[in-house]
């Protein structure tokens, strides 16, 4: 499967995506989400404080997942350079972020990945470093086989997608054979001490629905995942994060193609939860694109909606005051983060 970009698909354009989000439903306008925030006095949406720097190291990935909001895949060549990483390190050195969240694509495919992790750790021995590891990358090539050891050495926290504890559902979303490889990779991580009680090495799994429906309640599903993975494969992990699919990129294309768009959006809108709205991740996170530009979140990054703080739109121009005082850009895809128990890269928010 090729990325939407490689197919030259109309939805590979962020303008086209935004247009769908603003006009494809009766009784729905471009400021529908903003109107909901106004009702609960949260508009304009403001940051609380910047604690998390989520850095997208590139769109290249060894997988082509059907729901991917990044439209990542082997055919994507956008990769962060060492120069841009150096600019990120300046922010780590001089500002108050407490968590670095490395994502992609497969972040490990960036040739400077290990250098960057080592550099962050040498600046701050205590800072939390999360790597969003897709698991299969560990087995994709011999040069990645020692990743579990590398992760352990630098006390990296692992967050890995596993849509379900069975092969059928996992492979239908992430590609043939992904489940089997993911199980092998999880065993390697467990062998290294990840997800094992008492080691302090954190392995969290991420669940997102394989279709046009909402995620299950996080606590109940976590218990189910733990039981099934332990009983059948002897695999252990720390927490399960449930994430709602946001209607952008490949998931938007799926919703439109399968005629589920309207029903799915109605469900997100009907499930708007003010508590989840006040806890959205864009309030404490800045997302850095592969080219160094700054965004409110990874979704706004993919929609090419740069932060509104004009003097601080690139990592090299980082101005914490401007960023903290900025208005966060909200559009109708944001209903995905505020539905039900809420959704963020760390799971539910309400």
């Amino acid at each position: 499967m090729k990325s939407l970009k490689a197919q030259d698909h109309p939805l590979s354009s962020s303008e086209a995506e935004i247009q769908h989000l603003e006009s494809d439903m009766p009784g729905f306008s471009g400021d529908s989400f903003a109107s909901e925030l106004k009702k609960i006095n949260l508009f304009p949406l403001k940051p609380t404080q910047i604690e998390v720097l989520q850095i997208n190291l590139g769109k290249m990935c060894n997988q082509v997942c059907k729901h991917c909001h990044v439209d990542a895949g082997p055919d994507r060549k956008e990769i962060m350079t060492r120069d841009t990483m150096q600019q990120c390190l300046e922010v780590v050195k001089n500002h108050s972020v407490t968590t670095i969240d490395l994502t992609g694509g497969a972040p490990e495919m960036n040739p400077e990945f290990r250098w960057f992790v080592e550099a962050i750790r040498s600046i701050d021995s205590e800072i939390t470093i999360i790597v969003r590891c897709n698991l299969t990358i560990i087995l994709a090539n011999p040069k990645y086989h020692d990743l579990p050891e590398f992760f352990m050495k630098h006390r990296i926290e692992i967050a890995s997608s596993l849509p379900y504890f069975t092969a059928t559902k996992t492979d239908s979303q992430r590609g043939d054979g992904v489940f089997e490889k993911s199980i092998k990779a999880l065993k390697l991580l467990n062998d290294q001490g990840y997800g094992v009680e008492g080691t302090g090495l954190v392995l969290n799994l991420v669940y997102n629905p394989s279709g046009a429906f909402m995620p299950a309640a996080q606590a109940g599903l976590e218990a189910e995942f733990k039981k099934r993975l332990d009983d059948k494969y002897g695999i252990t992990f720390n927490s399960l994060f449930t994430i709602t699919n946001l209607p952008i990129s490949r998931f938007l294309e799926y919703l439109l193609r399968s005629e589920n768009y309207e029903g799915y959006m109605e469900k997100l809108i009907d499930s708007f939860n003010p508590v989840a709205a006040s806890g959205v991740m864009c309030r404490n996170t800045i997302s850095v694109g592969w080219d160094g530009y700054l965004y409110d979140c990874d979704f706004n990054q993919m929609l090419e909606l740069k932060v509104t703080s004009i003097d601080s739109q690139h990592i090299k121009d980082w101005n914490e005051k401007s960023l903290t005082e900025r208005d966060i850009i909200v559009k109708n895809h944001c209903f995905g983060c505020t539905a039900g128990a809420g959704s963020s890269c760390g799971g539910t928010t309400a």
């Binding site: 379900y164 069975t166 059928t168 559902k169 669940y207 629905p209 279709g211 429906f213 909402m214 995620p215 299950a216 309640a217 109940g220 599903l221 189910e224």
Partner: peptide
Amino acid sequence: TTDTMEKGCDEE
């Protein structure tokens, strides 16, 4: 059907 899927059940 939707509700069971949203409760984390699978097809089986």
